[in-house]
Each structure stands twice: as structure tokens, then as C-alpha cells.
Simulated assay, not measured.
Amino acid sequence: MYPSPSPVASRVRPQSRGTAGEPYAPGPDDRSLRHRRAVPGRAAGGRLDFSGARGERLRDALAAVHEICPEFSPAQVLRDAGPAVVLAGTAGRRAVVAKCLPERSGARAERFRLEIAAYRTFVRLRPPVRVPRLIADDPHRCTLLTEFVPGRAAAQRRHPVGVPSSADQRAMLHALARVNSWSPPEDAFPDAVNYPAQLTRFHALGLLTDRDVSDLHALLCGLARPGRELPREFSHGAARLGNVLLSPTGPVLVGWDSAGWYLPGYDLATLWTELGEATGTRRRISQTAHADGRRGRDAFLVNLMLVLTREIRQCEENVQRAMRDAVVAPPGGLSYGEEQRLRLRRLHDDWALARRAVRAAVGTR
């Protein structure tokens, strides 16, 4: 366990030494910040490239980072394709990563502020797993500065074709078990999912049938305690492979914007959905959920149905977007739309498997 970080401040205090680390994307080791190879967003000669359509976006992100950390010196653009701009650089002698969200209103901004709140909580309450240390933040400008952690992401994207090694999968399961066994104060994190409301929403969208909703409500009623309260467990909330950084000292969890209280087994259900080709690890996850008896099994199945339904909806939207944009396939490879259709087929197979398990569980009550 690493030492507890210093309190949050709006300005960075120069450090004589620091741990390098990269929590948002796979990167080279900590010595390579001084010897970068050519990357998108970085021009020859070691300067960032502010030309082109993305130049203004990059300039705005850098200005926001300098507001909370004037000492920040950018070295590389790690991500600029998604909603956030992620930069690697240094603050004093410490290697850091800056993450900035150009859109500062709407649902994405609210989730980003939840991630900042989680990192602030980790300053006061040491989590049982390694997380990047908070350096500085600005919730209003959606800017976050953390330490740079050396390592590689367990996957480059959601639902990868390949899976990590068996040893890495076991390390991830062990890290999630430690997260789920943590008991921070109840008011430190929010209740992340309103399960009855989520079922109603998916039913209205046509993603769940009347019987699906009835079966899941039956499992929820069986899980409710005497005071009609559902059991809760602290969860990462987005336990995907892309949010697990495999560092030399073990897994480092990032992407805490969904952290909060869930039914037990939510993180296991999320990881089960990601590991489509790792049948052995999927079996181990199911055995772990069933080890807590009928209540553990039922909570896991409710979470699994909701996670798979959400993933199917998102994948269907990706297929429609790919058809609209008419993305051309690379030579000798599949187009984005074809990849999404194959993924959608697997998700439907998994969803049918989960539905059968739910109906079997209801039949044994």
C-alpha cells in the first residue's frame, strides 16, 4: 500500500521526487517521459501540435490545466479522440497526467465531477487498492490532475477480441474483491443505481419484456431486507478492462466516475460481460457470486441482466452510427460496423443465457 496522498489543493506543490504513472491510457515506462516517440498531437522537436481542427480543443484543455497547475509542462497527447483530452507531462519533477473535459455541461460533465469527488474522497479515506494520487482538480472547468502510473491498460477498448493472461485476470479479480469488501462511510459515495427505476426505463424502451421485468422484480423482492432495503456493496461501477492499469506492482484501478453503492456483484457482472472469450474466468466469477448463497446469486443475476441490456443498447446505437457514417473497413480487416454487429450478436447470446439463469432462479424460489 502506498502512502496516503497530501490534501487536495488548487495549486500544485512542487515535489522533489514523485512516482510516474499514467491512469488513463497505456503508456511507456516512467523514464520515457524524457524520450517520447512521435505521437498524435505532438509535433517534431518536442512541441505539441496546435494546428488543424483539434488545435483549439487542445489549447483550451491546456489553459484549463494551467489554471490549477501553472507548473504543468505537457509532453504528449495521450487521448483526444473521445469526449476528454488527456495529456501526459510533468509538474515540477513529478510525472503527471491531466484530464480535461471541453464540454462542461450535461451528463458527461456530471460524471466527470463524480470522478473528481471520488478522488477527493480517496485523499481522506485510503482505498484498499492502488489508485492514482490526486494532484489538483477543478470541478467547474472539469479538469483533473493525477500522478502518472507506469504500466499498460488491460485492454485498449471495450469488449476486446483478446483477453489478458490468466495471471492478470486473477489479479484483477483479487483487486475487485478488495474494493467490494471495503466499507467507507455511507455518505462518502452515492447510491449509483435505482434498480426499480432502471427496470421501468428499460421496459419502456422495449429492451425488457413484461416477464423479464416481473422475474427481476421477484428477485429484488427476495433480496430486500426486513426494512425493504436492498443489500448494498461498494463497487467501482465501471470494472471494465480499460479501467484496469497493469503496473509492475499490481493492478491500478482508474475511471472512478461510477463508484458508489450497488447490489452485491455489480463489478463481477461488468467484468463477466467484458470477458467474452475467457470462459474459465467467467466460470470463476459465477462461482464467486454463488458462494454467497441464493442472495449472492440473485443479486449477481439482476446486475448481469441490467449490464448486458445497457451494453446491447449502446452497441445498437454504435451500429446505427456506423451505418449512417458509412465507415470504410481497413484493408484486410472488418469495418467498425461489422465489428459492432459481431459484438452485438455475442451480447445477445450472453443476454439469452442470463435470462435463462434468471428464470431458473425465480423457479427455485
Rank of each mutant, 00 (worst) to 15 (best):
D191M: 07
Y266A: 10
Q198D: 14
G280V: 13
W256C: 01
T209E: 02
Q198M: 13
R34C: 08
T279G: 12
A136R: 06
P264F: 02
A224V: 02
G18F: 08
D138C: 06
V12N: 03
Y24G: 13
E229V: 06
E317Q: 15
W261A: 04
H217D: 14
R228E: 09
L219G: 05
R158I: 05
R54K: 13
A53E: 12
T146H: 13
H348P: 00
L223R: 09
V358Y: 04
A44C: 01
P102N: 08
R324T: 08
A357L: 04
V65I: 08
A38D: 07
V39F: 11
V161I: 15
V179G: 00
S73A: 13
A155P: 12
A360T: 10
H66A: 13
A299G: 06
E317G: 11
A61I: 01
D191R: 15
L114E: 11
E274W: 08
R240Y: 14
G227S: 06
N303A: 08
R47S: 06
C142A: 12
R124F: 10
I116F: 01
V85Q: 00
L207D: 14
R120E: 09
D29I: 11
R297T: 09
S183R: 15
A188E: 05
L268M: 00
F112L: 09
T309H: 04
L205H: 14
M1A: 10
R57C: 03
A361I: 01
R157W: 06
A155K: 11
R36L: 12
A357N: 03
L342R: 15
R225V: 00
G21W: 06
A44F: 08
V161P: 10
L241C: 04
R104T: 14
A326S: 05
P3G: 07
G82E: 12
D257H: 14
G333C: 08
T279D: 15
A95Q: 05
D138R: 10
